[in-house]
Design a protein around this nucleic acid. Structure first.
Ligand SMILES: [Mn+2]
Ligand SMILES: [Mn+2]
Ligand SMILES: [Mn+2]
Ligand SMILES: [Mn+2]
Lengths: 219, 219
DNA sequence: ATTAAATTTTAGACATGCCTAAAAATACTA
DNA sequence: TAGTATTTTTAGGCATGTCTAAAATTTAAT
């Protein structure tokens, strides 16, 4: 139905729309997709013709419902495949994104339904991101950043804001993974670093840079 | 590494080479890939430049070891994904080919290794075709066509020569599937139809057209 | 309000993969 | 062996998606 490239543009625009609620600029899309502004202009004109987004010259773009649906479906496929790779094939959460970038373009609604069932209808992917439903509904994240939680509030680690391989591997190294229960014992007023008490009774220190990229759910 | 199109051409040429041991003609490739001879000429010149096949103008093509390896790896991916779709996702054997045509182009050696392990290192795909090993070795089929078997010789149904959806659904309908034990009770000299006795003690009649597309293993 | 800087679009080009129509080479046939 | 039929290649073109360089527009700064 839609080419890989079209799906990737729609997904990128959707991602940019999640934060900014204004229309999305050509350069922002070019940055995210690591391409040139001229190429973006070409593609958004094509997508506008197909009614996948609203485009006014020099004013940026906004997804239509139709375009948003294609984007959300692609996100759904991406995240379900990531669950498959981690849960079934035993990939690490730092290894799955690039493969899912390919798998998300496989075109078969029945395949995704059956994969969803096979995985037990997961609600979140291996990085804590919500998986859109078959109908295109996507739950807004109820998680908060660890660096905004007050001391002694018990929380469960539930997601990451930084999806980079380096960050994920760092969390592996210090023993933090999704599902880990913990609380902030102490916050350092000088550099914002935290002393975290894990449910294993062990305590670890993490920098503010790490804390502000960890999503937790208060319990 | 190689584009979808390049992989599909190499796979097609490999398939044609399995039967004919001479070099493969432009038209044969065009027929199999449902494209035009002129397009094939364009592509084989490109593949020859990349040393994936040997090409002499007007003399047809022959895969090099390098080209054969790419083809066999693609076949391996195709068949492993078909096993996944049938065994894990519960697709029918008539539904999996088209999806596997897409999945076979996903590029990750580690993914295929892990998929292979997850599936328990299967030796054959859902249609009875052998799955090449990680090293590119592929076992030649030891199966024979049912219409060449002599009466009363017990056999196990082990593969199909016709992979069409129509044929596979017909086999479903008459209750023949891989693993079914049977023997020929009687062969009709006029039309070549067979009276087959199944291990369930039930007997069925199948036409010669069906019999000559069923692969069996004598037991 | 001008001017300068940044962003965005256009113009023109290139690579891939496909097509049709015509030319060239090969294979068949009388 | 000449002539015809078939196969294959070439020539020229089209669609997609990319790029650089230059022009147009918008935004920011004085
Ligand atoms: Mn991802
Ligand atoms: Mn993810
Ligand atoms: Mn198949
Ligand atoms: Mn198969």
């Amino acid at each position: 139905m839609y080419s890989f490239t079209e799906e990737n543009y729609l997904k990128a625009i959707y991602k940019l729309s999640e934060n900014n609620r204004q229309s999305i600029s050509t350069n922002a899309i070019a940055d995210l997709l690591q391409t040139k502004a001229a190429s973006v202009t070409d593609m958004i004109r094509k997508l506008a013709e197909k009614k996948l987004l609203k485009y006014e010259k020099y004013k940026g773009v906004e997804l239509t419902d139709k375009g948003k649906r294609v984007a959300v479906d692609t996100v759904r496929k991406h995240r379900l495949w990531e669950v498959f790779l981690c849960d079934k094939l035993k990939f690490g959460w730092d290894e799955v994104h690039d493969i899912a970038e390919q798998l998300e373009h496989i075109n078969s609604a029945l395949l995704i339904d059956k994969l969803d069932a096979f995985l037990g209808y997961p609600s979140h992917d291996p990085h804590g991101d919500p998986i859109p439903t078959k109908n295109g509904d996507i739950k807004k994240s109820e998680f908060v950043l660890l660096n905004t939680v007050k001391a002694l509030q018990p929380v469960i680690m539930s997601g990451v804001a930084d999806h980079s391989v380096l960050f994920l591997q760092h969390l592996d190294k210090i023993g933090l993974r999704l599902g880990t229960s913990c609380l902030i014992e102490e916050m350092n007023a000088y550099d914002g670093s935290l002393k975290l008490k894990l449910n294993s009774k062990q305590s670890i220190n993490i920098s503010k840079d790490v804390a502000k990229n960890i999503l937790v759910k208060p319990v």
